[in-house]
Simulated scan of single mutants.
Amino acid sequence: MAVTATVSRAQVSRARGGTLKRQTVTEAAAEAIRERILAGDYAEGESLRQDALAAELGVSRIPIREAFRQLEAEGLVTLHAHRGAVVSALSLDEIAELFDLRALLEPDLLARAIPNMTEGDLAAAERILQSYENALNDADVHAWGEMNSEFHLTLYRPAGRSRSLGMVQSLLGNTDRYTRLQLVLTSGVERARAEHAQLLKLCRQRNAQEAGDLVRRHVHSAGEDLLAFLRQHRPG
């Protein structure tokens, strides 16, 4: 399968030929593979060939192997003794659990973050929303996922709870490929746009109670719509 690696410009610089230039090669390789998985370039259950990826990214097999371990910890890859690295396939029950965990963690993080938010935090969130809007207008599905996750994480960071934030970041990463699919093929885009704008407004008003309630509904409804979509398109 011919695939072009999509690597975050903020984290990894690449040469014209597609090889990785950054010193932290394992992180760069993990980012490249992660983005292919999230973009749907690699399907659920597909085997990832270590040699082929090393050649495509211009690195040795060692950082690819280490990247696989990192992605396994994130839940995106499963390592098998005889098959090597395989793109993880989440069951409907697992996806429901991930959204349930988000609905528990995110309202608490947001409530703790709001009293600590600065004008700089709010301005950063507003800029992300504008980028999100541009991505929607351009039908840039890759950017939707990035902007959606970064918007939420920007609002939660002032809580100062790095472990909880790390858990939420992992949960967002694990569900991102499914969420992108759902946004493309259902009516979720317009609701996400409206709810994000309202969430930022409530943060500006320092209304932690309503903001927490909204993010809980936002996560629950996204999960329910996603599960309904997946039930129609694949078995659990």
Rank of each mutant, 00 (worst) to 15 (best):
M167N: 06
C203E: 06
A194N: 15
E35K: 11
R204S: 00
T26Q: 11
H196A: 04
R112Y: 03
A143C: 09
G18T: 03
E126C: 02
S8K: 11
Q70W: 10
L90M: 10
E66Y: 02
S13L: 15
Q205I: 00
L79I: 15
T19A: 15
L98K: 04
A52Q: 15
A73G: 09
S131V: 00
G120S: 10
A10W: 13
N137R: 01
A5G: 10
A123S: 11
L165H: 02
H220F: 03
L199Y: 09
P158C: 07
G18C: 09
L90A: 11
T78Q: 14
A81N: 13
L155R: 07
S164P: 02
V86T: 11
L230T: 12
T154I: 01
R9K: 13
A194R: 14
R127Q: 07
L226H: 08
E74K: 09
E72S: 03
A125G: 06
L105S: 01
T4K: 15
R177T: 11
T186R: 03
A159E: 03
L105P: 03
R22C: 13
H233V: 12
G236R: 14
T186H: 01
R217P: 01
S149F: 05
R206P: 09
E146Q: 04
L38K: 10
G173W: 06
H218Q: 05
Y178C: 00
R61S: 15
F151D: 04
L153A: 08
L101S: 00
A67V: 03
Y132V: 04
L109P: 01
A52F: 06
V86I: 15
I64M: 06
A81Y: 10
S149R: 00
L105T: 06
T78R: 15
Y42E: 09
A5Q: 07
R34T: 08
R16V: 13
N207S: 08
A67E: 09
A10S: 14
A32H: 06
P115K: 09
L155D: 01
L181D: 05
Q169C: 09
N207T: 05
C203L: 02
D51G: 14
V7E: 00
G173A: 09
R206T: 06
L171A: 00
P235G: 15
V189C: 05
V12M: 09
V86M: 04
L104P: 01
V184L: 12
L200A: 00
V168Y: 00
H142G: 04
A5V: 10
W144P: 00
T19N: 12
A67R: 06
R127V: 09
S221W: 06
H82P: 09
A52W: 12
S47A: 15
Q198A: 02
P63G: 14
L227T: 11
R14N: 03
R22E: 13
H233G: 13
T179Q: 11
V7T: 13
A54D: 12
R206F: 08
R16H: 08
A67F: 05
S164L: 14
E35G: 05
L79P: 00
S170I: 08
E31S: 11
Q182L: 12
G18W: 07
R191M: 06
L105H: 07
E106N: 04
L104K: 10
R83I: 03
A222F: 09
D93N: 14
V168Q: 01
E150C: 08
G84Q: 13
